[in-house]
Each structure stands twice: as structure tokens, then as C-alpha cells.
Write a protein that binds this DNA or RNA. Structure first.
Lengths: 233, 233
DNA sequence: GCAGGTATGTGAGTTGTCTTACAGTTCCGC
DNA sequence: GCGGAACTGTAAGACAACTCACATACCTGC
């Protein structure tokens, strides 16, 4: 009747499946040719929903947020990308307009690849196509697990889950705890777990009062990871 | 400030992106060789989360449900597949264990392809690989829009959305309305939109009282599609 | 064709989360 | 280093959806 106790889903924030890792020097050179470097400022939008999908992007420096906004103004964040990750390739592949917005969270550096060049490159490098398929497949699995999160877990569990995953992907071990380096505002956390900003503030406050975390200034330090994982159940 | 009014997301229930459509006769023959036909009974599980991913399945007849169950017993349904659709290929591709359960909703007929054969087949048919990538990409987009549904919309809106999409993919035009042929229980609808069975019953009752739908026996007939779409906003 | 299992309808009570409102705090650009 | 903007903390009230409980209706397999 009971399913076996399930470990926290490691796919949630699994990062760094890099599309172009392990390229040969000649492939690299070829890629170099079709790529244009660009520097963009914080909050710069790469694209908005409905835009034609004319480019694929490779993030070199800074973070990029993939998100959508409802008519009400409520926002949902699908992913926050770290350097090394590719984005925008999905819609390019299908030739459909953008479905999400992409925006720089920090001053960032990116490589831009024009649609036609990307298509041509893929056609000539079937092994990269397979890698791309796996990458998209992994994203699909990750996003499925977010649906499970939304349906199965309440806000404290989702938030605990988020903190634990952030501590894994972005944490610095310190005496007494793990400092989460990724600086997310409460609003951004709310957009990631699908609740209101106030609820995040209150729930973090609860975690603090319970001794699970510590908040100095605007960064979170996890004091009791095991207990947090229990909350995330 | 306001985003432009967004039409209901057509990806939600978009079906029939068939992986092996447009195959040449020789390719077909080749596929034939690595395929084993099987008949399975209603409620037969193809696999469960954690199972090794040893096969890819091609659904010929009947419906298949992809779903997951929480320790609490609550269930979320990711997709209900119709004949012509492929499933189980994602985990096979990555060589990871199953992450969802797959089970026959009706007595069904399927083709089973062994993992090694599928891998080998893909390696020899790069065009099928590209198609597979697009198919998985489309699923990703669909599932992203379900997250938006869960975060942005309340239950009446989600249910109205579901009915409208079902009427498109599985509806029969009739004098006075569109009959939804797919026979889903209230529980199954609840699993699809992430709410309780009772809430589905009550909300359908509300739609009936408002004259939006009609329920004869266990099938739903949509009387006022436009109004339903408005509810789904 | 009847019985037992499965599905539906409905109500009362509870609760998690949102909304609204506002005060306090920290950051950042100039 | 100062001022304004962005962010955080907290609380009260509202409400959507859940749970629990039970009655009714419906299929379907023997």
C-alpha cells in the first residue's frame, strides 16, 4: 500500500549538463565561427513569449531566469540558469515562437547562435543531437518533479526542498552550516515554488525560529540539513 | 503592464506527434523485426517508478496512463496516451530507472522494443533522433504549461480548461453540444488537474447548474464551449 | 439479474494560503 | 554617505479547497 520512502528528487536542480562538453578542437573551432559574443546588463530580456525564435544562447557568465507572467501579474519561474547552460534551443528546434521569457538576473556574458547556424550545426553533428535530446529529456523529468511538488507538498515542504537543493548546487560548507550563495529574493523563491512572497517570508521566519536555518542579512545558512530534508519529506 | 490576452494553451493536450510516421517501407520492415506485439489487460502496469528501463513501448490500441503516487496515496497523472503514441523512451535514452508508473487504462495492444534495439535503431536513423528530440521538446512545453495552470489558475478554471481540451482531442460534435468521448472518472480528472475528487464532483455540478455542460450518465456534453473557455480564462 | 464493488453527490467543519496593509530594513546609485 | 527604491517582517481577515462522512447511483462479473 505504502510506496517505499522516496528520496528527495535529485533532478530538481541538477545542473551543468553541458551540451558542448567533450567537443573536439575542430568542432570547437567550427562552433566558434557561428557564435557571437555579447555582454548584457542585469534585467536585460533576451526574449519574451510570442517572440520569433531566432537565436540559441549559451550562458558564459551571470544567471538567466526563464519565467512566465500571468495577466494578473503573478509570475512563475521555470528555471534559473548558471554559466555553461544553453537556453532557447527548444523553440528554435521546433520553429515555434517563444513560450517563456528569458532575462538576465545579473550582468551577463553570452554567446548567441543564429537559428540557421544551429540547425546546420546539429545536422552535421548527430552526436550533439543525441546529447541535446538527453538534455531536454532531463529537463522534462525535472519539470515533472516540480508538478509533483506542487500537487503533493505544502509550502513549507516545497521551500525546504528548494533550500536543500540550492545548498547542493550552490552551497558553501562553513563551520556550523551551509551558506547558500545564490542570492534569491523572497519573491524569486515564491516564483520558484508557486506561492506568495509573504508566505515565503513567514515560512523562512518559522524555519529560523525552529533553528533549521539562520539568516544573516540576505543570505540563508542551513544549520540542520537533515531536519530540513525531513520537512521536505 | 498587462500582457496581451493569451489564448488557451493548445499544447496541453496536443496529441499524435507520431515518432514513426513517414517511415520508408524498409525502415518499417526493420522496425518490425525488433518489435514484439503484446496484448495487455486493463489495469496492467507496464512499469513502476524505480524499475529498470528495459523497454520502449508503442501503443496500438487502448489508453495508457503515466502517473505517480505519493506516499499519502495522492496521485498525479502526467498524461493519458492514445493509440499511436510512444512511451518509456525517455528513461531508456538516459539509461536511468523509471520515474513514473505506466498502466493500461483499457484492454490494450502494444509493441515492445527492447532497449538495446531501440538504441541501435536510433543510432542508425538520425532523422528519427531529430523527431524524437522534437517530440520530447513538445512534451516539455506541454508540461510547462501545466505548471502555469497549477500556479495561475483555480480549480474551476483548470477543470474548464481540461474539458475544453478533451472536447478538442476527443470530442464528438452533436446537436446542441460536444460529447466528450474519453470516459474519465472524477478521480482521474482530479489527478489530471491536481485537486480532490470531491472538488471535481462539486465543480462539475456547478457547471451543470450554470448550463455550461450536461451530464448524461457518466459522459459530459459541453453545451457552451465559449462560456467554458471564459471560465478557464 | 443480482450483489458487491466502484463511482458520484453533497454537506459540515477545518485549514493552508492569499490578500491587504503597513512598518521596518537593507541595498545601491549618485 | 545619503536618499530613494527595493526588499523583508508581521498580522488580521477572507476564502478556496481539503478532509471526513455518509447516502445514492451505477456498472459489471459471476
Amino acid at each position: 500500500m505504502d510506496s517505499p520512502p522516496k528520496p528527495l528528487n535529485k533532478l530538481w536542480y541538477l545542473k551543468h549538463i553541458r551540451l558542448f562538453d567533450g567537443m573536439s578542437p575542430s568542432e570547437m573551432q567550427e562552433m566558434e565561427k557561428i557564435t557571437r559574443m555579447e555582454e548584457v546588463k542585469k534585467r536585460h530580456p533576451f526574449y519574451l513569449p510570442g517572440d520569433p525564435s531566432s537565436n540559441v544562447y549559451l550562458l558564459k557568465r551571470g544567471r538567466v531566469k526563464l519565467a512566465n507572467t500571468a495577466a494578473s501579474g503573478k509570475e512563475v519561474t521555470f528555471d534559473i540558469l548558471e554559466p555553461g547552460e544553453v537556453f532557447g534551443e527548444l523553440e528554435v528546434l521546433e520553429g515555434l515562437p517563444r513560450e517563456t521569457a528569458a532575462e538576465a538576473l545579473d550582468d551577463a556574458m553570452i554567446c548567441v547562435i543564429r537559428r540557421e547556424d544551429f540547425d546546420r550545426y546539429l545536422a552535421m553533428h548527430p552526436n550533439i543531437t543525441v546529447k541535446l535530446t538527453k538534455l531536454i529529456g532531463l529537463r522534462l523529468r525535472r519539470i515533472q518533479s516540480r508538478i509533483e511538488d506542487l500537487v503533493f507538498r505544502d509550502v513549507p515542504a516545497r521551500l525546504a526542498h528548494l533550500l536543500v537543493e540550492l545548498s547542493k548546487s550552490d552551497g558553501a560548507q562553513e563551520p556550523g552550516g551551509i551558506r547558500i550563495k545564490a542570492k534569491l529574493t523572497h519573491q524569486e523563491m515564491a516564483n520558484l515554488i508557486g506561492c506568495s512572497r509573504e508566505t515565503v517570508s513567514a515560512t523562512l521566519g518559522q524555519f529560523r525560529d525552529d533553528g533549521l536555518i539562520q539568516m544573516d542579512g540576505r543570505t540563508v545558512v542551513i544549520l540542520q540539513q537533515a531536519a530540513l530534508i525531513r520537512v521536505a519529506s
